[in-house]
Design a binder for these strands. Structure first.
Lengths: 113, 113
DNA sequence: CTTTTGTGTTGTTTTAAATCAACAAATATC
DNA sequence: GATATTTGTTGATTTAAAACAACACAAAAG
C-alpha cells in the first residue's frame, strides 16, 4: 500500500481469482458459524471495515488480517502446506539439475539459516 | 496499513508461524530457481525491499505481494484449497445443526451472492 | 409497527507501508 | 588477486491503508 504496487493495482488473473475465492470462503465460513462481521472482526483484532475488505478480496490488505481471519475461524491449518518445499517438484528438479551456469547463485544454504 | 492492527502488531503464534514458514518457503523456491531478489521482485511488480520483507514473514505486507510471489514462482495453485467450504467440516456441521437460536443470522444465502 | 442488529457507503484523520538513494558487506565470477 | 552481483541497512519521502464517525437501508425480532 501506499505507493501502490503494480501487483496490488492490477493483479494477474490467477492472483485475483485466488483473492476473490479466499474472500468468499471466509465469508461462507463466517456465516456458517453465525458470526457477524463486527463480532468476528473483534476476535481477529481488526475493524469491521477491514473484514469487509477481506470478504471482497481486497489486494492491498495486510496478509496478517487475512491470516487472522482464517485463524479466528479455525481454518489456519490450510495454510501450512502452501509453497512447501517438499511439494515443490519443479523446484526440486531445478535444484537437482544444477546446470553449470544458470544464474549467479550466491548463498550456500538453500533451506534457510 | 497505518493505524497498525493488533493482528499485525502481535499476531497469535499460529499466524506468526504460518507467516515465517511461508516466507522461508518462498525464499527456498526462489533460490532453487536461481533468481535474485531484484529479478523476482521485478517479475512480481514490487521492489526488492518488499520481497525481503516477504521472506522475513512481515505481517503488514499486502497479501497481493505474497500471492504475487507465489504466482511468479508457479506456486499459486497451493492457495486454491485454502478455506474451501467443501473441506470445512466444522462449518458444515454447524450449518447442519441449525440450532434455534445460536446468533442473529441475517442473510438468507450462505454461499455467496 | 417498532426496535434491534447487520451491513454498505462516504468522508476525514492518522500513520506506517512502499519506494528510493546510498552505502556496506557478502558472495560469486573472472 | 580484482570485479560484478546480491543482499542488508539506514534515512527521507510519498501516499494510501486502517480506523472512525455518521448516515442509510435491510432484515430479523419484539
Amino acid at each position: 500500500m501506499t505507493r501502490i504496487s503494480k501487483i496490488s493495482k492490477s493483479p494477474p488473473a490467477a492472483v485475483e481469482n485466488v483473492l476473490n475465492q479466499l474472500g468468499r470462503n471466509i465469508r461462507t465460513a463466517r456465516l456458517r458459524r453465525k458470526l457477524s462481521r463486527e463480532n468476528l472482526a473483534e476476535r481477529i483484532g481488526i475493524s469491521r471495515y477491514v473484514l469487509a475488505d477481506i470478504e471482497k478480496g481486497k489486494p492491498t490488505t495486510a496478509i496478517a488480517a487475512y491470516l487472522g481471519a482464517l485463524w479466528a475461524l479455525g481454518l489456519i491449518r490450510d495454510m501450512r502446506e502452501v509453497a512447501d518445499p517438499d511439494r515443490d517438484e519443479e523446484g526440486k528438479i531445478l535444484e537437482r539439475a544444477r546446470s553449470p551456469k544458470t544464474a549467479p547463485k550466491r548463498r550456500k544454504m538453500d533451506d534457510d539459516f
